[in-house]
Nucleic acid binder design. Structure first.
Lengths: 269, 269
DNA sequence: AAACAACGGTTCGTTATATGAACCACCAAC
DNA sequence: GTTGGTGGTTCATATAACGAACCGTTGTTT
């Protein structure tokens, strides 16, 4: 593994829930040598990617990332293009909505929007999304580049009893997503959550990411599913438009079938 | 130079004005070998820091920087703490306002806010700020850690005829900043701009950054200076409060003198 | 259409650079 | 004063970074 990659990987250990990390602690987390880790941290600090809390000596993300994010968003305004649709989605469903972006073979969390309706709700710690266990991931496998499925099949980490851990289980979920235009993760990532997701496309015509709703499994009803489904499709259309893409015809067709079926099961809301 | 540092440095060549860069182009800019640069780009791409435009093969910043920025801002909400004061500052002065953050020995642009009042106005390409040639930089030298001045004196790059290029010239500007509580860059960075800046402090009690106004030199009048001065101080106080700091007494005293002197020169606005 | 130049990407022998066990100095708890 | 935890440093070793030269493609020029 290249030294640059190792240094960059250190950044991925910072998160909202763990925003400051000490040297020794980071060595444990990353399972790396202290001297090496220290040198990497120095490189990162020099470049402004991290800085040291003067009081605690712990490291935290630095100001350089703010600049880069601003340049990125000015170049490819993904977040801006998703914001409105996400808040509307969270508002209409009363659940937590979020969007993801595919880059290379990794699905990254873009932003999250919680609804205040329920005290118990899913919170998304924005991170990379496992392709096989999340609704957004299944969307990526179903509608993204084909080689993604091979990559995902290599690492079928088990998160819950429902996580698909063999290729057959995974492909059946992906096929279902293709057929319905919707990715579904029923307790496959976290024990209590039910995720539904719809694909989003960009100006290259390719799959660019997904928009998703994470709901608490215990309050999931056919009625709620019907609402989420309808709103998800609206959001996916809006974000796709903002990202300069168009929904492929076969996806629109799959959605139409899904909605029809959903309405049939729970008629006249 | 470490490989990690070299890879990270590549990211700094992306900017709002040059958001996408091809391999060969980047090699020229960074004055690096093509094979090496390519490998570095691959590392960066793997980590999600850059991605390739599928059509043009050019590289641009990737989604990972968005996540990191979100974590950084959740950890240390610098931007949020500066936003309101900056818009108010731009609004009150009719000029472009911006804020900078010191991390290590580098002064980073945080955010910029333009006023629509004039068609001709300064635009800040958020980047690292040269300590010797910008108003914010002079603030950092005047109120930041002492070793900063030694570092800055090592690299006195000339930008204009007014750029201080010897230690004496620089120290006199820094001394002036200390005496007035205000950093001044009169055509020392760009030929047409006049920058005024005030220091901002954080909860450690240290200098944390600066807030600044970049004005067009040709429309600069004592009257405008008086306005900028007053508003700058208000903004610096507000941002300092939001960042959890307090303005040191000697800085407040210097400001009081500056305002008094400025009022005396242009009485009864 | 042939020649050219510029592009992104790859190869391979050389050599510089990353590595990590062992090492400080420091601090807090007991 | 011992113990266990920090953040930070050293130096011989070995690994991975390096770059000249290479390939295949593309789009422009003659």
């Amino acid at each position: 593994m290249s030294s640059a990659k190792k240094a960059l990987e250190l950044l991925s250990y910072f998160s909202i829930s763990r925003p400051e990390i000490g040297l020794s602690q980071l060595c444990r987390i990353a399972k790396r040598d202290k001297a090496t880790t220290y040198r990497h941290l120095q490189s990162l600090e020099n470049a402004g990617f991290i800085e040291q809390n003067a009081l605690t000596k712990q490291y935290r993300l630095g100001p350089a990332v703010m600049q880069l994010a601003q340049i990125r968003e000015a170049t490819v305004p993904r977040k801006e293009g998703a914001r409105h649709a996400l808040t509307a989605l969270a508002d209409a469903t009363g659940e937590t909505a979020h969007a993801t972006v595919l880059s290379g073979q990794t699905l990254y969390g873009l932003c999250e929007c919680e609804s205040p309706r329920h005290a118990i709700r899913a919170v998304i710690d924005l991170n990379t999304f496992p392709l096989h266990a999340t609704a957004s991931g299944l969307c990526a496998l179903a509608f993204g580049p084909e080689d993604l499925l091979c990559v995902a099949a290599q690492d079928l980490e088990r998160f819950t009893a429902n996580t698909p851990t063999d290729t057959d289980g995974l492909t059946s979920l992906v096929d279902a997503a293709r057929a319905t235009g919707i990715g579904r993760a029923y307790k496959s990532y976290a024990e209590e959550t039910y995720g539904l997701s719809a694909p989003v496309f960009d100006q290259t015509g390719q799959f660019a990411g997904a928009v998703a709703v994470a709901s608490v499994a215990t309050r999931f009803t056919p009625k709620l599913e019907q609402t989420i489904l309808a709103e998800l499709i609206i959001a996916a259309r809006e974000i796709t438009r903002n990202w300069g893409g168009v929904i492929p015809a076969h996806v629109e067709a799959a959605w139409a079938l899904s909605v029809k079926k959903s309405n049939a099961m729970e008629p006249a809301s």
